[in-house]
Amino acid sequence: MDPIRSEQFLWTEEKRLVSQSSVPHSPFHQSTFSMDGQLKIGSNRQTMLTHKEDLLSPKTRLGIWTDKGTSWFSTNEWDLFPGYYQKNELLVSHAYHRGMHLLITAFDRTNQHDNGFVRTLSIKNQSEQHTSFKLLIHQQPLIPDREDALTFYVPEERALIHHQEHMSTLVAARFEDDIQVRYEAGSYEKNWNEATGTALFSPLASGSAESLIIMNADMKPHQEIKGNMWVLHHESLMGLEEAHHSVQTNVLK
């Protein structure tokens, strides 16, 4: 079973994604993102973060939980194809779970305000069996947790806000309407129960700039689920809100 999709698929998806963005591409503008072995997005501090000398690049890691436990994309159950395809601002990567025949494709590009990234996720069950799991999106802190760090969930925006060192980071995700998504503020180690695959109800965390988004998936054979997530940065909450609404207007069509 070939986990890699055809170039025709990539080209079709690329045209769809690029058409959603109103940001013109300049041949002199380098992509501000790089992909590592865990499908983490690393922001370029010189262009993404004002306090570049004080902050490390925020990291977002992906994994799935089943009754066998959590499998991050860095573990040996996965075949990884980071940066499999890139053109202009679009970076495509694959993660294929050999045991579950689960293919996850990430389409990453900068957002319209150039202060974060948008990731479109395509999750496909390539097996002949029903499969159930939880997709985990773990936002790790900018710098080690300090007393001035704060993370909280904003229900009306359906987003998590992380505040640390005069910089605010917003993390949000949208999947199909019938798919349940939970947002948890604070430490992954404290909030996540590995044995049961559940999280504590934690809408606010003081002293922590960390969070977890959990998506429940119950997939039929050959079913595909699509969704979007984004991570944005700004010094003001007003600027963060503007960028957040811009992503929803331009991406969630």
Rank of each mutant, 00 (worst) to 15 (best):
G69P: 11
T32D: 15
E7V: 10
S211C: 15
I225C: 04
S26F: 09
P24T: 00
S31V: 12
S19R: 13
F9H: 07
G116H: 03
I225A: 03
I4H: 01
R146L: 11
W72E: 06
H138Q: 08
Q129D: 15
P82N: 06
E53V: 07
F201T: 11
T169R: 14
E128Q: 15
F81G: 07
I179F: 04
Y188H: 06
L232F: 11
Y183L: 06
P27G: 04
P141S: 01
M215L: 10
G186P: 02
S187W: 04
F133S: 02
L102T: 09
Y85M: 14
N88R: 11
T66M: 05
V231C: 06
Q30W: 13
Q38T: 04
V118Q: 02
Q140F: 05
Q46C: 02
E242N: 07
M215N: 00
T131K: 11
H97R: 12
Q8I: 14
L170T: 02
K52A: 04
H51E: 11
H162E: 14
Q38K: 10
L56T: 07
E189M: 05
F201M: 03
F175C: 08
E194T: 11
K220I: 10
A173W: 00
G239V: 03
R174W: 08
T70L: 09
T198K: 03
E14L: 02
P155M: 07
G37I: 02
N191R: 00
W65H: 13
M35E: 12
V118F: 00
R45M: 10
K220R: 15
S236P: 01
L62Q: 08
I41M: 11
V92H: 01
E156V: 13
L17I: 14
A205T: 05
I4Y: 01
D145Q: 13
H138N: 09
L39D: 04
G42A: 12
P141A: 03
Q129V: 09
I123C: 04
Q139W: 03
Q112A: 15
L142Y: 01
R119Q: 14
P221C: 15
W11N: 09
L103W: 07
I4A: 02
D79R: 08
H113Q: 12
Q46H: 08
M100V: 07
S122N: 07
F81K: 12
P141Y: 03
S22H: 12
K190Q: 14
P27E: 11
A159W: 00
Y85E: 10
G186W: 03
K59V: 10
H101V: 05
Q30R: 15
F117S: 10
M229P: 00
S187P: 02
L204I: 15
G227T: 13
Q112C: 04
S26P: 02
S93A: 11
V154N: 02
N228L: 09
F73K: 10
K226T: 07
V171F: 14
K52Y: 05
E224A: 14
T12H: 08
F133W: 04
H244L: 13
S43V: 14
K15G: 07
V154M: 09
I137Q: 00
H234S: 13
R109D: 07
K68F: 07
F152R: 08
T105A: 03
